[in-house]
Amino acid sequence: MENKQIDVLLSEKPLDLAACQAFVDSQATGGIVHFVGTVRNQTKGKAVLRLDFEAYEAMALKEMHKIAERALQAFEIQKIAIHHRVGSLPVGELPVIIAVSSAHRKAAFSACQFAIDTLKETVPIWKKEIYEDGEIWVSATP
């Protein structure tokens, strides 16, 4: 049975910030923090046309759940949503949303940063940047 404090999604469909907000919100919530990743139009001076995301779905979902569970244990948060897109995303689309709620803001900020940093390091989701003159697979971590 899925933990009601955790909402994890890997989807080919556009992500819904309002749905993430609604999931983490409650009357006990004093603060909600969102991280919303967007496809930008350039990287290192090169024009980006789109990003292609691929994932090892079963493992990615498992790792995303682990991140959410670790955040719940390590920070005084109430709920966490981690949603990520796969497929081809044009400039302006949202590849990732993380929403965290807590009674107080510091825990929500810390947990949100932990979740996005850990996701980029451990979850098997790969990103390819597509340019006018070519493409390249890029590492999630510097």
Rank of each mutant, 00 (worst) to 15 (best):
G87Q: 06
T118E: 15
C112Q: 05
L72C: 12
L72Y: 08
V86L: 06
Y56N: 08
P142K: 12
E54H: 11
Q73Y: 06
E135Q: 12
L15P: 03
I97T: 05
I77G: 02
L72E: 09
L89N: 04
A111E: 07
P142N: 13
T122L: 06
G92C: 09
I98D: 04
L61C: 13
A58S: 14
A58G: 12
Y131N: 05
T38L: 15
R40F: 02
S88E: 12
A107M: 07
I32Q: 07
A71D: 05
E54T: 14
D16L: 07
Q42L: 12
R40L: 09
S110T: 09
P14D: 14
A22W: 01
A103T: 15
W126P: 05
K62W: 03
E57G: 13
A28I: 11
G134M: 10
I98T: 10
M64F: 02
V123D: 04
G45Y: 08
A115N: 03
F114W: 08
F53C: 01
A47L: 15
A74V: 00
F75C: 04
I67W: 01
L89M: 08
R40W: 02
E76C: 00
A18I: 13
F53L: 15
E76R: 11
I6S: 04
W137K: 02
S102M: 08
E93R: 05
V100W: 00
A28P: 01
E2P: 14
V138A: 10
A107H: 09
A18F: 11
D117Q: 13
I136C: 12
Q21K: 14
A19N: 13
V8P: 01
H104K: 12
F114L: 12
L15V: 05
I130N: 08
K120L: 12
L119A: 10
G87D: 07
I32T: 09
G45R: 11
A111F: 02
T118K: 09
I97C: 04
M59T: 10
L15H: 01
D16T: 09
K79R: 12
K127C: 06
E93T: 07
A81N: 01
A107D: 13
L51F: 08
Q113R: 15
I82F: 01
K127S: 08
A28N: 14
D7P: 00
S101P: 01
T118A: 13
T38V: 14
P95Y: 06
H65L: 15
V100M: 03
I67G: 00
L89S: 05
K46W: 01
K128C: 11
